[in-house]
């Protein structure tokens, strides 16, 4: 389906243009989410999109599903409640790097540990965009931010390694340049029964790019093209070649672990069988 048709089918009418700045990657990630949903042929009534607060979190309001734009950092607990309340729903969390790994950092590791069937799409633009360019846990060290006028001294998280260590059973990464791969890995994440995290490397030309002399929106997208390496190629690279670059694709997929709501059904059976 063309993007035009996807917008017609999955976006709420009359809500475009969206609020994001010129060149912001959030629209591309949002588009990738609807492509993934379309690929899986999910009924709109069976999809819930839960977001926190921040630029990326405004995506939920544009999409014609069961949607909630909630509190900063708290999308994952709410989504966990939605999934527990109605396990039939495909629950997608739309969140930013600050939302999910700073204020919501505790929630993402515990949801990963539980292996609850949520698909978390992290729009990683390396910065707090909505509030105007403060550094996040995903701002690369030695970058400038409005709260790091002398550059940051904090190393950034590696999202895939973080959530994999915490127990996530599907982990992938793509960029807004690799938009088709992004849609594909989101679809695989939704189809996976368990806790899935997709890091969508995005660009914030206004609040991150300008401060760090990254050029314009097209330059930042070219940066993604030149630094995101598909896994097959990545595996053949030397450590020297990998320096400063990052792998994209499905980085971890484990189907051996029991999903949380399934496990809870077992608890219900035990509790009811004991009578």
């Amino acid at each position: 389906m063309t993007m035009e048709k996807l917008v017609e089918k999955y976006f709420r009418p009359g809500r475009l243009p969206h609020i994001w700045c010129p060149g912001c990657g959030n629209g591309i990630v949002t588009g990738a989410i609807v492509k993934a949903i379309d690929k899986l042929e999910l009924a709109k009534d069976d999809v819930a999109v839960i977001s926190g607060i921040g630029c990326s979190s405004r995506a939920s309001g544009y999409l014609d599903f069961n949607t909630a734009n909630t509190l900063h950092g708290r999308a994952i607990p709410i989504a966990s409640g939605v999934k527990m309340g109605d396990p039939r729903l495909n629950v997608i969390v739309v969140t930013g790097d600050g939302d999910s790994t700073a204020i919501g950092g505790n929630h993402i590791i515990h949801a990963a540990r539980r292996n609850i069937d949520l698909t978390v799409v992290i729009f990683n633009n390396n910065i707090y965009g909505m509030t105007g360019g403060q550094y996040s846990p995903l701002t690369p060290i030695h970058s400038k931010a409005t709260t790091a006028p002398y550059t940051t001294i904090e190393p950034a998280f590696n999202i895939p390694e973080l959530v994999k260590a915490a127990g996530a059973t599907f982990v992938a990464r793509a960029t807004t340049f690799h938009a088709q791969i992004l849609a594909d890995v989101i679809a695989q994440g939704i189809a996976h029964k368990g806790f899935s995290v997709i890091e969508a490397v995005s660009a914030c030309p206004i609040s991150f790019g300008r401060q760090n002399k990254m050029g314009g929106p097209a330059d930042m997208m070219k940066w993604q093209r030149d630094h995101g390496v598909p896994l097959a190629a990545w595996d053949k690279m030397t450590d020297e070649q990998k320096e400063g670059k990052f792998p994209i694709g499905v980085l971890h997929h484990d189907t051996s672990k029991q999903e949380y709501t399934d496990a809870y059904d077992g608890i219900i059976k035990t509790a009811q069988g004991g009578k």
Partner: peptide
């Protein structure tokens, strides 16, 4: 947070 989510499912 979790009860907010479950409340949304009725």
């Amino acid at each position: 947070g979790a009860i907010v989510g479950a409340a949304l499912t009725g």
